[in-house]
């Protein structure tokens, strides 16, 4: 990583002990810094507003405003802020709702510390992507329930960018994509950066979800 600045993180969880545990796991890493902790969704939105972290780790079940609504509000105010969901719920339905709300990643609380740290770094680097099985389900959902026709966005991506995104949908890492398209890693990263900018998103996940939703990527592209 060229960026030696620490990744600033907000944690929102109503269980103090779990929240503290998450903080400890993250702070053991030299490149991660927890800048704020919220005990409910409303506080999370307020703290995101005050501290402008790079990434927010949010639980679903929280008092006042739940994690889904908090994600929606944070993404509406700060499209570039990545949201990683850390929850005890494991059903797809939450994944769908959260992806639609703009979350970049979805992790179960029972993940090992190392996986959590990796996920944070990946999401921050715009690398995290949907599990192919979930991507397929998301796609089926959008096919079954097409967004209101007529207000579909004009395809804004170039062919090359679409190609990169299509490979990203399959779960390939940046390096894999670079190898496959005979490009340098930097170029792939640059392409993804452009894609994020054009789509006003902060992660591959969101970019893929939007592309699926808008129909720029089709069923055959999902493994």
């Amino acid at each position: 990583m060229q960026d030696m600045d620490k990744i600033k993180i907000l944690i929102a969880d109503d269980h103090a002990v779990v929240r503290e545990g998450t903080r400890q796991i993250l702070e053991e890493e030299p490149d991660l810094q927890v800048v704020a902790q919220a005990a409910d969704g409303e506080e999370a939105v307020n703290l995101a507003d005050r501290f402008k972290p790079d990434l927010a780790i949010i639980d679903i079940s929280m008092p006042k405003v739940d994690g889904i609504e908090a994600t929606r509000r944070i993404k509406a105010a700060y499209p570039a802020m990545a949201v990683l969901i850390l929850t005890a719920y494991d059903d797809d339905q939450f994944v769908f709702s959260l992806l639609e709300a703009g979350a970049a990643g979805y992790l179960l609380k029972s993940v090992r510390g190392k996986e959590l740290v990796d996920a944070v770094r990946q999401v921050h680097a715009g690398e995290s992507v949907l599990h192919p099985a979930i991507a397929r389900k998301v796609l089926n959902r959008f096919v079954a329930k097409p967004d209101q026709p007529g207000i579909r966005k004009e395809k804004v991506l170039s062919d090359r960018e679409t190609e990169v995104l299509r490979l990203a949908t399959r779960g390939l890492s940046n390096q894999d994509i670079a190898d496959k398209l005979c490009l340098s890693l930097r170029t792939v990263q640059a392409h993804l950066g452009h894609i994020f900018n054009k789509l006003q998103v902060s992660s591959r996940t969101e970019a893929v979800v939007m592309a699926l939703k808008e129909g720029w990527i089709s069923l055959e592209d999902v493994p």
């Binding site: 269980h15 002990v17 779990v18 545990g21 400890q24 796991i25 005890a88 609380k109 029972s110 090992r112 510390g113």
Partner: peptide, 13 residues
């Protein structure tokens, strides 16, 4: 579940 999460994390660490 939250208590189990804490326990599981401690074991993991």
């Amino acid at each position: 579940i939250q208590a189990l999460v804490v326990l599981s994390r401690q074991l993991d660490s």
